[in-house]
């Protein structure tokens, strides 16, 4: 029989990639998380995580750090995205470029530069670990917040705003009743793209000579101490948290129609 090529076969390379680099490690993580050092199934790792005040403290600290970073990013990104999307300037695409361009530079290099600047201002970086973490992460993740919001606002049908005004809404009312709700899908995907990495990206903290621990650093330290089982369990818990968070934002987004997101 003649061999027939179907479009589905184009997905084979990616399927293989998924299998080897995503599915398999996941299985390994689940296996390690649910077994003890002797290889027998156990819930010890789970209990250990939730009974250790240190790990719980790290989780809480990570959540707060991620939350603050996300809020700061949102507060900066929304007005910027709004200004870019609604500017009458012909140069607005250049301005968008300016905000995207930092993403083209290696991020360790960017952080090194940031570190020098912060050292110049603060003297010793160790005095303000939380503040520095927020600054570093905001600096790093801001474009990921601006871009989805900008995309969403850019695509917003401007005649809707005219319709709102036509029906009697002032500038503020038409923003609150039309622009803001219609830009929510962008905001939600922006949050997803900032909040999740902000919980785990300990490289930012390391680069800024930060001694505080976030979830990422915690996992790293477990693995560094060859505690595969404990590290895997924390990864799994984090994964579960991310899943829950994503599901929550997705179900919200579903209501808003025509989601505009990067994730």
């Amino acid at each position: 029989m003649k061999y027939r090529f179907s479009r589905k076969q184009l997905a084979i390379p990616y399927a293989l990639f998924l299998l080897v680099f995503v599915a398999a490690p996941l299985v390994v993580i689940v296996y390690y998380a649910l077994t003890g050092s002797d290889g027998t199934p156990t819930a010890d790792n789970f209990i250990r995580f939730f009974s250790d005040p240190n790990t719980l403290g790290t989780l809480l600290y990570s959540l707060i750090l991620a939350l603050v970073t996300t809020c700061v990013c949102l507060l900066i990104a929304y007005p910027v995205a709004y200004a870019l999307a609604f500017s009458r300037l012909k140069a607005s695409s250049v301005l968008v470029m300016l905000f995207i361009m930092p993403m083209w530079i290696n991020f360790t290099l960017r952080l090194t530069a940031l570190k020098e600047i912060l050292t110049l201002i603060e003297g010793n970086l160790a005095f303000h670990p939380f503040l520095n973490s927020v600054i570093g992460m905001t600096y790093d993740f801001l474009p990921f917040m601006i871009l989805p919001i900008y995309n969403q606002l850019e695509r917003l049908d401007k005649s809707l705003l005219e319709a709102a005004k036509d029906l009697g809404a002032g500038d503020a009312q038409s923003f609150i009743k039309v622009t803001l709700p219609l830009s929510m899908p962008g905001v939600v995907s922006g949050i997803a793209m900032v909040f999740l990495p902000a919980m785990t990206n300990y490289v930012v903290l390391d680069m800024l000579y930060n001694s505080t621990y976030i979830m990422g650093s915690l996992i790293g330290s477990y693995f560094a101490a060859y505690d595969w089982h404990g590290g895997s369990m924390i990864s799994l818990i984090l994964l579960a948290l991310i899943c829950i968070f994503t599901l929550l934002t997705k179900s919200d987004e579903g209501q808003k129609t025509r989601g505009g997101s990067l994730v």
Binding site: D157, S159, L160, A163, A164, P181, L182, T257, R258
Partner: peptide
């Protein structure tokens, strides 16, 4: 409006 401009949300 020409394209109706109904609020989709």
């Amino acid at each position: 409006f020409q394209r109706y401009a109904l609020f989709p949300h």
